[in-house]
Amino acid sequence: MPPAPGNSSTRYLPPMHELSVCQAIVREVLELAAARCATSISDIYLRVGPLSGVETPLLRNAFPFAAAGTVVSGAALHVAPTPVRIHCSRCDADTVVPPNRLLCGQCSDWRTELLSGDELLLDRIEMQCSDEKDHAHV
């Protein structure tokens, strides 16, 4: 765990894997920022499904700790939830279901395949660059 910014005794961060996820976000964004000589990052957009095992509120709490002291510090974290969608191999229907009940919404069969809902994706970032000429295309 990186040292907590500010007074660590008042900003206790419990053990959670969301911190590891935030560290991965920061590493990835720093790489992209360095490649484009970015001076700051204003926005980070994620897509997180309920079956990824990552809790958005915990992700938000952990983010400032992982970002502290980098150009990513101060960036707004936008988390778009994705629905749990399944495909039924028995009746072929695609339905949206709760994360702990992956039974076909049409025929209730359990032999279903997950179409979305377990994403943990870095979708998009917005950054400010020092020199417009340095802009590189992905």
Partner: peptide, 16 residues
């Protein structure tokens, strides 16, 4: 506002 927007679409646990 002149900032750059980059679509990344990468799994956050790719390194793991």
């Amino acid at each position: 506002n002149g900032s750059e927007s980059i679509e990344v679409l990468k799994g956050l646990l790719a390194a793991n």
